[in-house]
Amino acid sequence: MAAPPTSEEVTNGAEPPSGDEGATGAAPVTPRPRHARSEGAKAHGLLGPTTIWLTLFLLAPLVIVIWYSVGTRGVINPVQHPGGKLNWSNFSRALDPSFLPIFIRTVAYAAATTVASLILGFPLAYVIARFGGTWKNVLLGLIILPFWTSYLVRMYAWRFILDENGLANTVLGSLGLGRNHQFTNTHWAVVLGLTYGFLPFMVLPLYASLERMDAGLIEAAYDLGSNRFSTFWRITFRTSLPGVVAGVLLTFIPALGDFVTPQLLGGTRTQTFGSTIQDQFGQGQNWPLGSAMAVLLMAFILVGVFVYTSRVGEDVL
């Protein structure tokens, strides 16, 4: 996500950019090729296990999914490539307009989740970063705590809360507010579940960028005549934007691919693109189509991230 260095940064250099004290007077570093090469070799050595890991567990499955996406389905053997022929029709099938409403719904869920996470997560991250003091680590631990149990279990817990005879209705009923509210099987329930599930992914990068922020910036803004609101908006929020960008990506992308939440908290009208893909590997019996849909979703995300970071990134990162 790091923004590439701008040309400005590279060219105009009357004084070497340096934040370190005393560094300005230092003589320019002369490169020593032999040393550099051994450093490079060391770096390769360090990256070795990572490279193997990524190749095995990221690249290989990706290649397999792409390979599947140009296959032909079968009853016994779910993906075939008869005569080595590539079957591109899965992609036209995946782009069938009948999937469009589901795709739009999925994007809407992910967007709503992201916005909700941002609205809930920002004050949380801000308070922990600014006023957490010695409790910072404890509070962060609490944010991460839900990860200690499976996402599935937590969604079941929400179902237990939201069901017709669940906790929410029981409590509301005992308060005389009626006990027949329909919470599950609604779009709201799905967004709620997603928001609950992905909030930590928003809070952590936000916290990291807010924590890093120089508290002096806020005083500087006050000093320059900026009131509290303006300071928050122009300084606190703006300087945390790298965190916001990271948080938005980390929330939006998994929310876009999620299929567990709509299945557990949603109903018949909350099918998402992710659950449609999932269905293709199960009862839909169409692995090639599911793979093609997955590839398209991935491409959509890649393009989206690229556009997003190149538009927002230049200004922020």
Binding site: D214, E219, Y222, D223, L224, G225, R234, D315, V316
Partner: peptide, 29 residues
């Protein structure tokens, strides 16, 4: 409050706004 006092401060850490250009930093006040 500080933002209504007719004084300005040069901070030890400079506290320059990292997301703003030199021009926008100076124009901020």
């Amino acid at each position: 409050p500080p933002y209504r006092r007719n004084v300005n401060t040069v901070f030890q850490s400079y506290a320059l706004f990292p997301h703003l250009s030199v021009w926008d930093n100076v124009a901020f006040g």
